[in-house]
Simulated scan of single mutants.
Amino acid sequence: MDKKKVVVGLSGGVDSSVAAWLLKEQGYDVTGVTMQIWEKEGEEAQEEQGGCCGFSAVEDARRVAASLGIPYYVMNFREEFKANVTDYFIDEYLHGRTPNPCIACNRYVKWESLLRRSMEIGADYIATGHYGRIDRLPGGRYALRTSSNVAKDQTYALYNLTQEQLAHTLMPVGEYTKEEIRKMANDIGLRVADKPDSQDICFVPDGDYASYIVRCVGTSRRIEPGNFVLSDGTVVGRHKGIIHYTVGQRKGLGLALGHPVFVLEIRPETNEVVIGTHEESLAYEVRANRVNFMSVEDLTEERRVWAKIRYNHKGAWCRVCKTGADEIRCVFEEPQRAVTPGQAVVLYDGEHVLGGGTITGAA
């Protein structure tokens, strides 16, 4: 019987590198691929962009593949990345929402596009260095299970994967801690063993999202200054443009009202940023659409689940029910701060991802 073929997405980091090594050790026929996502070709430009798919990442991945003795290719995903990640990212900010580009990239580029192309060249699976695990449940459905390394768990950013994608995915590092992964890399002599983790969004390495958007789209009404207002409409100052703000933000507002204030809402139609107190920033109810269920085919009755409303949220208990064909409502047992439209609410049933959706608002 032929060995199963797997294409590993090599980012040039230690996690994906060890993932490739683990799969080779397990007897898979492994090929390494780096996804090229930038429009600019120059090495200088890609070096500046850095992140998981910049020029230095390609060189690191190429060296890892050579060290492991596996074939290595760079695949062009520029069009897919622009359409599904950067264009979406810009549009969300212009409409007063705060996107999560990593979720979009995972779903539509790292999985949908890479998986399709990998299957076309005869692969059985794709694999990544994400910290998560995949189980096939008794009913036959596939579901993500949280990583053994709780501090590094990445299932929140992967909740939107489909059953087909999960069925053809391997996540070998999910059973290990980061320290164990780095030790393996050192033991087998990989140069990336001590390479720092990337922290920022890959296409905005300096973290200045607003400047990136301005460079891409130029000036428009939604980037022009407008009013800071209270919930009752009282004007209390001027803001720099709605793309500079996100719900829950406290720092960088430039307001001196004698007490801490937070962004409560962004209103693109009137170019207003609503601010208020900490108490006003709390909400019990979260609404979401663009729902993807994972461990269940559909939600047929109200359930008590553990939920996260952003990547670094510790999570909290809520009751979730469907309120429409593609809409859910989560009512938390304790009020949550900074429910942010555009972010994801991800639901957990024990260790497994039940599903999730894109937050549309709070109450």
Rank of each mutant, 00 (worst) to 15 (best):
residue 190 L to E: 11
residue 197 D to R: 05
residue 186 N to C: 12
residue 203 F to Q: 00
residue 210 A to R: 00
residue 196 P to C: 10
residue 201 I to A: 00
residue 210 A to D: 07
residue 189 G to W: 03
residue 199 Q to H: 14
residue 181 I to F: 04
residue 180 E to M: 03
residue 198 S to V: 14
residue 209 Y to T: 07
residue 209 Y to D: 05
residue 186 N to T: 11
residue 200 D to Y: 08
residue 202 C to H: 06
residue 195 K to Y: 05
residue 198 S to N: 13
residue 184 M to L: 12
residue 190 L to Q: 10
residue 209 Y to M: 09
residue 200 D to W: 06
residue 188 I to C: 03
residue 208 D to C: 08
residue 187 D to H: 03
residue 201 I to N: 01
residue 189 G to S: 00
residue 210 A to V: 01
residue 206 D to Y: 05
residue 204 V to P: 01
residue 192 V to E: 05
residue 182 R to A: 06
residue 188 I to Y: 00
residue 184 M to R: 11
residue 185 A to E: 04
residue 188 I to D: 04
residue 210 A to S: 15
residue 185 A to S: 11
residue 200 D to G: 09
residue 203 F to V: 01
residue 200 D to L: 12
residue 201 I to H: 02
residue 191 R to D: 15
residue 192 V to G: 07
residue 207 G to Q: 14
residue 200 D to H: 14
residue 205 P to F: 12
residue 208 D to W: 05
residue 185 A to C: 06
residue 180 E to F: 01
residue 188 I to K: 02
residue 190 L to C: 12
residue 193 A to Q: 07
residue 181 I to W: 02
residue 186 N to Q: 14
residue 195 K to H: 11
residue 203 F to C: 03
residue 205 P to V: 12
residue 189 G to P: 00
residue 207 G to W: 10
residue 202 C to G: 12
residue 198 S to R: 14
residue 190 L to T: 05
residue 198 S to C: 10
residue 187 D to W: 02
residue 202 C to F: 14
residue 200 D to A: 15
residue 202 C to N: 09
residue 196 P to M: 06
residue 201 I to M: 06
residue 209 Y to A: 13
residue 183 K to W: 03
residue 204 V to L: 04
residue 206 D to H: 11
residue 195 K to G: 06
residue 183 K to P: 00
residue 182 R to F: 00
residue 207 G to V: 09
residue 180 E to W: 00
residue 183 K to C: 02
residue 198 S to I: 13
residue 202 C to R: 00
residue 201 I to F: 04
residue 183 K to S: 13
residue 200 D to Q: 14
residue 182 R to I: 07
residue 193 A to N: 10
residue 197 D to K: 06
residue 188 I to P: 02
residue 202 C to K: 01
residue 205 P to D: 09
residue 206 D to S: 14
residue 190 L to D: 09
residue 194 D to T: 09
residue 190 L to N: 03
residue 200 D to M: 15
residue 209 Y to K: 14
residue 194 D to L: 09
residue 207 G to T: 11
residue 195 K to P: 07
residue 192 V to Y: 08
residue 206 D to N: 15
residue 206 D to P: 14
residue 208 D to G: 11
residue 181 I to H: 04
residue 180 E to Y: 00
residue 191 R to W: 08
residue 195 K to F: 04
residue 195 K to R: 15
residue 189 G to I: 00
residue 182 R to T: 04
residue 184 M to G: 00
residue 183 K to D: 13
residue 188 I to L: 03
residue 191 R to T: 10
residue 196 P to R: 10
residue 188 I to S: 02
residue 198 S to W: 10
residue 205 P to I: 14
residue 182 R to K: 14
residue 183 K to H: 08
residue 196 P to Q: 08
residue 186 N to A: 13
residue 198 S to Y: 13
residue 195 K to N: 08
residue 188 I to R: 01
residue 205 P to E: 10
residue 195 K to V: 04
residue 189 G to H: 01
residue 182 R to C: 05
residue 196 P to D: 08
residue 195 K to E: 06
residue 201 I to V: 15
residue 192 V to N: 06
residue 197 D to G: 03
residue 207 G to N: 12
residue 195 K to L: 05
residue 196 P to H: 09
residue 197 D to W: 05
residue 199 Q to V: 14
residue 188 I to A: 03
residue 189 G to K: 02
residue 187 D to I: 05
residue 183 K to V: 07
